[in-house]
Simulated scan of single mutants.
Amino acid sequence: MSDEFDASLRDLTGKLTQIESVMDLDALRAQVATLEEQASSPTLWDNPEEAQKVTSQLSHRQGELRRVSELRQRLDDLGVLYELASAESDSASMHEAETDLGDLVKEIDGLEVRTLLSGEYDDRNAVVTIRSEAGGVDAADWAEMLLRMYLRWSERHGYPTDVYDISYAEEAGIKSATFKVSAPYVYGTLSVEQGTHRLVRISPFDNQSRRQTSFAHVEVLPEVEEIDHVDIPEKDIRVDVYRSSGPGGQSVNTTDSAVRITHLPTNIVVSCQNEKSQLQNRAAAMKVLQARLLQRKKEEERAEMNALKDAGSSWGNQMRSYVLHPYQMVKDLRTEHEVGNPSSVLDGDIDGFLEAGIRWRRQTESA
């Protein structure tokens, strides 16, 4: 076995061992056993929402165990394969082993990023809101492009999404949209996307084909759970109902089922129009309002600490540029991670940016 390959294999084996330690496989197996017991209960589906939560958690934790076990087995098999190939001077098998090594490096690095998600809410579902900012109709179109990017990313990973509300702009695109992505650790993963996203391109809405810079803001919140106890007295909210609307403002149903809730003490406004009934829309809107109030509370608790930090590191500032003209590039301004294929990124291929963002956040927090 060559010294270089042997060293790479040792480094990778050590990294996987560290990951296994952080993930605490014994505790993970115990969680799986407990969830399997709950899933086998004949009364589980008496509460469909709780049943879905149990089965989802069980599937995820079983998947984590299976993923680590398979990586460990592949690493063990890889060492044997390369040793035999070297002994027999089998160039085809040696090439196969080197290819497998490269694949394992990517997969284990990806798993290592998952172990960095240890924040209080990192393991939850994510509630994402996209708002168009400066740039007029181009900004509204840009906000819709970002919405598609995140929905495509979710689809690529098999993560269910639920669009709560879309406010369409008059000419094209959207003013704002709010949706939920359901998967373990998806909040921790997507939280690094929070901030202002900048697009530079030749405007398709300018008859002189001039270059236009547009901005949209992405907000990522953890889904609120019952244990969070966000108390919202009825006297603190105003509830308005209206008819759901689609592109161009036309009504898409004949009843006042859409709901807008205003939190009077903070003037936070949330709305939901995509559920079938007014009651369902109100429940969904309340969950988004609770998420925003929970986020506000956490931000207030961190205010003193954040005041001591360099303002340039704030997630609320411009964090990524997407340039379509005069050259092609997407660059994260925090991590310096960049890609020369904006079309792929806008089609949902953002895992490289997410992994770089998670590593950057951990380094920033520990600095």
Rank of each mutant, 00 (worst) to 15 (best):
124 R>H: 09
11 D>I: 09
280 Q>E: 15
124 R>M: 13
122 D>R: 07
145 M>I: 15
321 S>E: 13
119 G>N: 10
109 D>R: 06
7 A>K: 12
31 Q>Y: 08
175 K>F: 11
61 R>C: 08
234 E>G: 09
326 P>Q: 10
92 A>T: 05
178 T>S: 12
196 T>F: 01
331 K>S: 04
54 V>D: 00
31 Q>K: 15
263 H>C: 03
261 I>S: 01
164 Y>I: 06
95 H>Q: 11
295 Q>A: 14
65 L>Y: 02
264 L>C: 03
102 G>W: 05
195 G>H: 00
37 E>T: 13
289 L>K: 07
87 A>S: 11
61 R>Q: 14
341 N>K: 07
201 R>I: 04
339 V>G: 01
148 R>L: 03
34 T>N: 14
343 S>F: 14
9 L>N: 00
38 Q>N: 03
276 K>G: 04
145 M>W: 11
139 A>E: 04
2 S>W: 08
344 S>N: 08
288 V>L: 15
289 L>V: 03
343 S>L: 15
269 V>A: 05
137 V>K: 08
100 D>N: 14
141 D>L: 08
237 I>L: 03
107 E>N: 02
187 Y>N: 00
30 A>G: 04
283 A>Q: 09
237 I>Y: 03
340 G>S: 14
32 V>F: 06
337 H>R: 08
35 L>H: 00
253 N>D: 15
210 R>L: 01
198 R>G: 07
11 D>A: 15
298 K>D: 15
61 R>L: 13
24 D>T: 00
350 I>N: 08
17 T>N: 15
175 K>M: 01
351 D>Y: 05
208 Q>M: 04
33 A>D: 14
75 L>E: 00
115 T>G: 12
245 S>L: 10
321 S>L: 07
299 E>D: 15
122 D>A: 07
126 A>K: 07
324 L>F: 15
279 L>N: 05
134 A>K: 07
299 E>Q: 13
94 M>L: 12
203 S>T: 09
319 M>H: 09
326 P>G: 11
147 L>R: 08
5 F>K: 02
48 P>K: 04
89 S>G: 02
106 K>N: 11
317 N>F: 12
28 L>F: 11
165 D>I: 05
85 A>F: 12
58 L>S: 01
127 V>F: 09
304 E>W: 10
3 D>Q: 13
307 A>K: 14
123 D>M: 13
142 W>D: 05
133 E>P: 03
222 P>T: 02
62 Q>A: 01
311 A>P: 10
171 E>C: 03
307 A>W: 05
110 G>A: 14
337 H>N: 06
114 R>I: 12
214 S>N: 04
81 L>T: 01
185 Y>E: 02
203 S>C: 05
363 Q>M: 13
325 H>E: 10
80 V>A: 02
25 L>T: 09
87 A>G: 11
191 S>E: 12
366 S>K: 15
227 I>F: 13
19 I>Y: 08
75 L>R: 00
65 L>T: 02
12 L>K: 02
114 R>V: 13
76 D>H: 11
274 N>M: 08
34 T>I: 06
313 S>C: 02
56 S>N: 11
275 E>R: 12
350 I>P: 06
